[in-house]
Structures are given as C-alpha cells and as structure tokens.
Nucleic acid binder design. Sequence first.
DNA 1: CTGAAAGCGCTTACAG
DNA 2: CTGAAAGCGCTTACAG
Lengths: 345, 345
Amino acid sequence: MPNIKDISKLAGVSTATVSNVLNNLPKVTLETREKVLQVIRDTKYRPNTIAKSLKIKKTNTIGIITEDITVFNTPEIVGGINEYAENHNYHIILNNIMMYKKIGNNYDAIARYTKTVSEIVEVLVSKQVEGIIYVGAHCRDITGLIENHAVPIVYTYCYSNRETAVSIYYDDETAAYEITKYLIGLNHRKIGIVTGLLSSAQCQDRLKGYQRALYDSHLLFNPEYLKAGNWEWEMGYILGKELLSLPDPPSAIFSMNDMMAGGIIDAAGELGVNIPKNLSLVGFDNRECSHAYSPKLTTMALPLNEIGKLGAQSLIDILSGNGEHPERTIKLRCQLIERQSVVSI
Amino acid sequence: MPNIKDISKLAGVSTATVSNVLNNLPKVTLETREKVLQVIRDTKYRPNTIAKSLKIKKTNTIGIITEDITVFNTPEIVGGINEYAENHNYHIILNNIMMYKKIGNNYDAIARYTKTVSEIVEVLVSKQVEGIIYVGAHCRDITGLIENHAVPIVYTYCYSNRETAVSIYYDDETAAYEITKYLIGLNHRKIGIVTGLLSSAQCQDRLKGYQRALYDSHLLFNPEYLKAGNWEWEMGYILGKELLSLPDPPSAIFSMNDMMAGGIIDAAGELGVNIPKNLSLVGFDNRECSHAYSPKLTTMALPLNEIGKLGAQSLIDILSGNGEHPERTIKLRCQLIERQSVVSI
DNA sequence: CTGAAAGCGCTTACAG
DNA sequence: CTGAAAGCGCTTACAG
C-alpha cells in the first residue's frame, strides 16, 4: 500500500499538496489537482485514517457497549445508532459484553461485572473513541456502573441518575396508560393486569399508568385483577388461569410482555375462553412471537430504532458542542400495534 | 490526557523505558518499573492505541459488515465473532448496511448495492482493519459482490465461489436429510414438504436432502406432497390447506422455515387437524416464534454462534499466518430441537 | 499556489 | 539497564 509520500513523488508535488487535494482544500490549482488525482487512481491509494486521526486528534468513532446483542431489543438499537452515525460520518467500535453468559442472574457477580465494564471503557478510550453509547439488555437503573468520565457516555435502554448522565429509553407509564385507556374506550370495565417483577421500576411505572387510566375514567381498581408475574411464559399461563377462573373474570387483560401473553393465550384456550370474543388481550414489546400467536397479538411496540438514533444524535451533539445542555433523560413514546386479540364489547 | 512523554518526565526516565514497562518487556529494572507504574496509576495514563498501531503497523481490529443486523440470524453471528475476537485480543468495527432498507427486493438496485459495499470495504481498509467478516442476511451466493483484495475477507451466512474466498455457513442438505430421516424413524411414510423459493440454492439443497432420505429408506417420492412456497407465513397457510385437503394427506410435513410452519399450524387448526396427533410438523430456523406456537414447534436450530466464532477464527488464523491453506468452504451442522409438534405413529 | 519542516504519541534498533 | 533519535503516515502553520 503506497503512502502519501509515494503519491507525492509520483505526482511530482509535495505531501502537503497531496494532503490538500485529499481534503478538498481549495488552495490547489485544478491542473495539479488532476495530476494528483490521477496518481491516486492509478495506485489505488487510500489514505491511512489512523495516521490522520493521530495528527488531527479526532477519530470520528464512537464505542458501543451492548450488554447482550442477542436480546431482542438490542439489534434495532444498534441499527439506529449505526444509521445516524453513518450519516454524520462517525464509525462504530462494537463491544458485546455477553452479560447474561457472564453473570446470569447471579447478582453477587455484579462487582466483577462492574469491573469488566470499566475495563472495556478504558480499552475503548485507549482506542480513542470520542464517546460511548451503552445499550442495556433490559431497562433499569445502572447508576454507578461506569465511573469513567474521560469521554461522554449516553445510556440507552437503561438509565443513570448521575447529574451529567444522559439516558434514553421509553415511557412505560404513558404506554400502560394508553393501553388501559384503549381498552376502556372499547367498553372494557373489568381489566386484568399481569405484571412483570414488581420490584422493577419498569413494572411500577406501568402499574402507575394502568391505575391512572382507571382513575381518570372513574373506574375502581380491583386488586383481584392484579396478578404479580415475572415476565416468563409459564407465569403468564398460571396467572391467566387464575384470572379466568375468578367468579367475575376480567373481559380484558393487559399483559406486561408478549411472553406472558403467550401463556395467557394457552390458558384461555384450555379453559375454552375464546380470544378475542370472550377475552381481549394486549401484550407489550411487539416481539416476533406476538404475530406468531393465534390470534395475532395486539401489543405495544418499543421505539427501538429511535432510541438508537436519538442516542447517537445526543452523543454526537455533545461531541460537536451543540449539546452543552443536553436533556438528561428522554423517554420516547411507544406505539400501539393493533392486531387480532382485542375487540370492543 | 497525559502522553508517554509526560509520564517519562514525571518518572524521570526516557519514553523508551516507559514504553518498555507498558509492554512488559523484561529489560527494565524492578525498581524503575515500579516508579513508572506508580506515575501511570497516579495520572490515570492510558496509552494511545492508535499511535501504537501507526508505529507497529498492526491495529488488531477486524471489520464486520452486516447486511441487516435486525435479521434474526445476524445478532448471534456477530456475538460469536465478538466473543472469539475478544479472546484473541481483536476489536471490531461494525458496519450495518441496512440492505433491505436500501434495496428491498429491488434487484435493479444490485449495482448500486455493490458500489455501497465496495465503498464500505474501502473505508474499513482506510481505518486499517486487518480483515473483514461479511455477514449475509440470508444464505446465498454473493460471488463478485466484493472485489477488493487489500485485506482478507471471510463470508458468513453466504458464500463466494472465488478461489481464495473462505465461506462459512451451514449444511442445508444434511439438515433436511436428518429431518426427513427423523420423521421416517417415527414411522411416517407420507411426508409432505413445503419449500422456500425453489430458485434459492438453500431450497434446492434441502430438497436434495429430503429426497435422498426418502431414497435411502426406499420410499417413493410423491410429487403431490411437494408444495413450492416462498418462505412467508401466508404461503404456509395456503399450502398447508392444500396438503391437508389431499385425498390421501401426509402424516407429517417438513416446512422449510418456521414462518410457513406457523401458517400450516393455523391451516391445520381450521381444518380440525390436531398437531401432533393427526399431523406431525417440523420447521426450520429455530426462530423465537417457534416456541411461541401452540404446540411448540420441533425445528432445526442453526449454528449461528458457531458460524460467527468460526468466521472469526478463520480470519484470525489467516492474519496470523496459521491459515495458509484455510478451508475454502465450511458447512456447519444444524441441530434438531425436539418440542411438541411431532409424534410417532 | 506550493513546499520544507515540525509534530501527533507511540516503538525500536542502536549506542552507551 | 537506560536514553537519544528516527520514523509510522498523516496535517498544518509558515515562508516563499
């Protein structure tokens, strides 16, 4: 591979001139420009970007740390980041932590995990990334996970409460509010809810939205209609049976994810309850399985691509100085996807 | 951020000595090593990797080009690449082409697409990646897509017929053979098959496997049992109905992907055919939807993580000179996942 | 408009 | 064992 010196010799000019034509600076004559360009074409010369980066102290690359790229939310977020970055001439160094493989649900391992993440951040900084986007595997508080501040970091699909942190995720409460309102608008008055792990902030926010929607519509909250789940299919099945076996069963159920909704569908099937005729069901996440179910599930789509794009945008704004006072926390709207599991009564 | 010169001054040694301790070279006294290490700790100094790369002409990074990171196969392949690369001290620059967004099924756009890919390869080479792994969105022949040979390229989930190309994907024929043999072993004699697009090499290979299995078991191939599909759910539904409405319907169906299997499940449901009691069904791909169906689908899992790992391994072997004569084409075995849609008769 | 020279932050013979 | 110096491939004042 030739370098700029080779090109300058072949073209009979200085390396400065070659550099000038490479960077389209207007201070070079059309004639010499053509001469240089010709040599570049002939030799298939490609300037060495890292040498340039070293000199100008700008790499135009950002690091992405994904907790687990095989989790359903992550590829689209990464895709969104990539798209925005590419359009703004930034490149991406990817680092997939494989968090689940490494620590599973073993929360003793969190200290080790924190260390792993710090090391990855340091390596990325060594590689001169200008900023980092962290992509969570599930939406939660990760304050304190990363203490390095050599470089700006934006969090997506998770959040940090540090003063300076910018976090981008989605609005659980509004989404749950809208689902519940939607059901109420369809004349449902007995609306069951199957939750995720109650300890999660996500779950609590959605519960708030659910209850606020009931309240706004002057509906009483019936504790019998609330079943505390754990995000898993099996639990949806169990709790679905419980709800449907109530003396006065709900006419609609809001399941906090599509997985549990699958369990509820099977429970209903076994109990001879037809969806949507006798039971309306709404899921959450718009995962691939949601349109594989029979009936196809009405569910809430997550703004994953937008989270990625906005993450990249926020970071790049900060890097270019347009982001002096970036919004600390952005919660994007989800979007209801109407399919076949809900009906008006 | 301090640089090596700052550290050398603070420690009262030369930059050469700092470099030596940084790289753990044994030519430095324990005492001075400690002194230098202390300064490094105090200043939180991190060596600039790109400066080092420029000097030693080795970046330890590989580029990944994904056709579409949101396609189901891709995240796991990328995860596998990342895992192997990380363990061998390589980093990854990711570039997602968003092929479907850019060209869809518009094959007129293929020239433009080829140009896009070439440009991305050039940019990666400029960034001094040592090699590239190309990840296809679906398994097919892409000979000629990339003509750049500045750097070794390995193809995953697709293949090139160029002499020098190394391609890693999976063995369609054997997988189809095993599915068919599995069904035959369960005493099925009337085995329907719903294919993907007949024009695809994948589909043809699977057909070969299917027919070879029949032949090996002295079963006659019945053309009525072969339905030419197109990978889509709706077509599965249509062809499932056709197969099940035959005067002598099959007792088992091999669907060439999980999507069409979903359509077949619905078709069977409508016709009152119970799966698995009256019909056994096997899918292909082990997608998320396959365990969301009711009954949960028996299907063929793709060795995605392994494809990624082996891709990274092949590339890194070539880069380190261990791969002088790398295998040109590696087809990995798929693995049957037994669930609830198949039964012995 | 063009070129000579310094310098980005490292590493590596080479001399001492 | 340690240091002075050259050089990786670029860019950028600066002088002409």
